[in-house]
């Protein structure tokens, strides 16, 4: 039934992807990229992947735009003229042809007898109600069946944020001159651009708390509907970033200090891993939540999933806000000292 809709949205998607590649003005490309992300979230919904669409929506609507734009503010918003090169086109066509040839053996789209649906998925779906009593199967698989994967992914988020911190927070011994001071410097610069837009300020004071409230809802309602730690973290971070954009970094720093975020970033992963260790102490295996409650295995699993999702949410929130801190703080530091040729000055 959704077949024609999918086809049309796919067409839009390809058009926007081509435009992203083609547009030489990187700012325009960033805008079109936002549209691309909206379209892909729509497609995920049509393909039944509501949780994926939810994440894409939360990430694509706010954070990724902010990220690309703050990079553009630090670099050049225009791309150089460049002719089409034929060797890459040939390579790409070759790869594409090979992949199309590879799909010929694949089961058709939506085929219920495809091998992917035969192995573990039925057990997961079966277990959702009997083992967990949690209607959102994705949450079960995320936090419990595939708990190791998710722990790894959360750690990757932590690691990437630490990488950003090392790259943009300062070089070498720049801990002294690191994030705190860069953000400090931002405080003097920041209030200028936005304070003339009274309306944005007023509406942000109304909307930011609502976004946070909704983030909490997503965090704790993730067992029953689409949502969970990853989405909630991104939504929560968007509220804080919105505040930072409108009222300036120094104001955001008064709300959450970078130091606090750094602690939270690590604490989230620790909560996750700690839940696993706690189950070890209760004679279970790592990340086996059933032993967390003596009386009912189902309650134990509920508790474990709640804790794990909380850890994920905390880490993701702190990671996103910290990334914003470093990118935006870099901009202020740069405009302070325009001679940024010196490699040693952080």
């Amino acid at each position: 039934m959704t077949f024609p809709i999918e086809a049309i949205v796919f067409l839009f998607l390809l058009a926007t992807a081509l435009a992203v590649t083609h547009l030489r003005d990187l700012f325009a490309a960033a805008m079109v990229f936002g549209v691309f992300s909206l379209l892909s979230a729509g497609l995920f919904t049509l393909m039944d992947a509501v949780d994926v669409a939810f994440t894409e929506a939360a990430v694509g609507a706010g954070i990724s735009t902010v990220l690309i734009l703050s990079t553009l503010a630090l670099t050049d918003p225009r791309e150089h003229q460049q002719p089409v090169r034929f060797a890459p086109v040939a390579v790409v066509l070759l790869v594409g042809a090979a992949l199309v040839y590879g799909t010929l053996d694949m089961p058709y789209y939506g085929d219920p007898t495809a091998p992917i649906h035969k192995h573990v998925a039925p057990e997961y779906i079966e277990g959702a109600m009997t083992d967990f009593g949690i209607p959102n199967i994705v949450t079960n698989v995320l936090a419990s069946y595939r708990g190791y994967d998710t722990l790894g992914e959360t750690t990757v988020v932590l690691t990437a944020t630490v990488g950003v911190m090392l790259l943009l927070g300062g070089l070498g011994g720049a801990r002294h001159r690191g994030d705190a001071e860069v953000v400090e410097a931002a405080g003097d610069e920041e209030p200028t651009p936005m304070d003339r837009v009274q309306v944005a300020r007023v509406s942000t004071t109304v909307l930011a708390p609502l976004i946070m409230l909704f983030g909490l809802y997503v965090q704790f309602h993730g067992d029953f509907g689409p949502g969970g730690g990853f989405q909630a973290g991104v939504i929560f971070a968007s509220a804080l970033i919105l505040h930072g954009i409108v009222f300036g970094l120094s104001s955001l720093k008064r709300v959450v200090s970078p130091r606090f975020l750094e602690i939270g970033l690590a604490a989230g992963v620790l909560i996750y891993a700690g839940t696993g260790v706690a189950s070890l102490f209760r004679d279970g295996t790592f990340l086996d939540y059933a032993v967390l409650d003596h009386h009912s295995a189902q309650h134990g699993r509920h508790l474990g999933i709640l804790l794990v999702e909380a850890g994920v949410g905390i880490t993701v929130t702190c990671a996103m806000v910290l990334i914003f801190f470093f990118f935006a703080g870099r901009r202020a530091a740069k405009s302070e000292e325009p001679g940024d040729r010196d490699r040693r000055v952080a």
């Binding site: 837009v197 309306v199 944005a200 509406s203 109304v206 909307l207």
Partner: peptide, 10 residues
């Protein structure tokens, strides 16, 4: 109804 006039105005 709240955000679209705000962003339009801005």
């Amino acid at each position: 109804l709240y955000t679209s006039p705000v962003s339009g105005h801005a």
